[in-house]
């Protein structure tokens, strides 16, 4: 079984993945809604920009985050000046990297589910006296919930597996930014740590498998027109 250090790594990974997913969730949903429902100039550019982390080498994303959140960066400088905090070499930075990398996957899943909501039902609700906000809260959101949850689970799994952007942005600090993939990478550099690599890899595969199955089940549920709420 796992020793205390390894449990710490698993706990840190779950925390980084969980926070990344929770913080990214509303952003991803808002972007998904925008792309699914609103026509605006430059939409194709926004769409492409959201998907960049999916195709750009993760090390580039990490470097860009470093520029933005570094002490002299536009966001990092602001955080330092106003709140006296930095995300460099911190688990919060790891969560930011994971969230950015997970964003496109989450937006894709949520966008599909929002597009699948039947506009004719929304029109029926309007004729029954519901304004746009009520239509959103009572129809659009609950009917797209399975896809939203599927996207969230997928984002969580992606966050736990994040490596390139994280190690570039916040380095590989044991106990702070050393999540599962980074710990596996470190263990691979040490002679005689094979069993640790095995154990952590099994945990990684197990967590990813559970998340993918959950996401798939939720997507199927959405496809059948059955709903969580």
């Amino acid at each position: 079984m796992l020793n205390a250090t390894e449990w710490g790594i698993v706990a840190l990974s779950l925390r980084v993945g969980g926070v990344a997913m929770l913080v990214t969730l509303p952003v991803a949903f808002a972007l998904a809604w925008l792309l699914a429902r609103v026509r605006f100039p430059g939409k194709v550019i926004v769409d492409a920009a959201i998907h960049l982390p999916l195709v750009v080498p993760p090390v580039v994303t990490g470097w860009l985050l470093l520029l933005a959140f570094g002490p002299n960066g536009p966001i990092g400088g602001w955080l330092q000046d106003w709140f006296g905090i930095t995300v460099l070499f911190r688990w919060t930075g790891a969560a930011i990297a994971a969230g950015v990398m997970a964003l496109p996957l989450m937006v894709r899943a949520m966008r599909i589910s929002i597009e699948a909501v039947d506009r004719r039902l929304e029109n029926a609700a309007r004729t029954l006296g519901a304004g746009p906000w009520r239509v959103f809260w009572t129809l659009t959101l609950p009917l797209s919930i399975p896809g939203v949850l599927a996207g969230a689970v997928l984002g969580f799994a992606r966050s736990i597996g994040e490596f390139g952007a994280t190690i570039t942005f916040v380095s590989n600090v044991p106990g702070e930014t050393q999540t599962l993939p980074l710990a596996i990478y470190s263990a691979l550099q040490q002679p005689g740590a094979d069993s640790m690599v095995w154990r952590l890899s099994c945990i990684s595969v197990g967590l990813s498998l559970i998340a993918l199955i959950a996401s798939e089940l939720l997507t199927r549920r959405a496809g059948r027109g059955l709903h969580v709420l």
Binding site: R120, L121, A124, A125, T138, L139, P142, L143, G225, H227, L229
Partner: peptide
């Protein structure tokens, strides 16, 4: 409407 358009949830 032609089809009932009941809210499925």
């Amino acid at each position: 409407f032609q089809e009932a358009r009941l809210f499925p949830h």
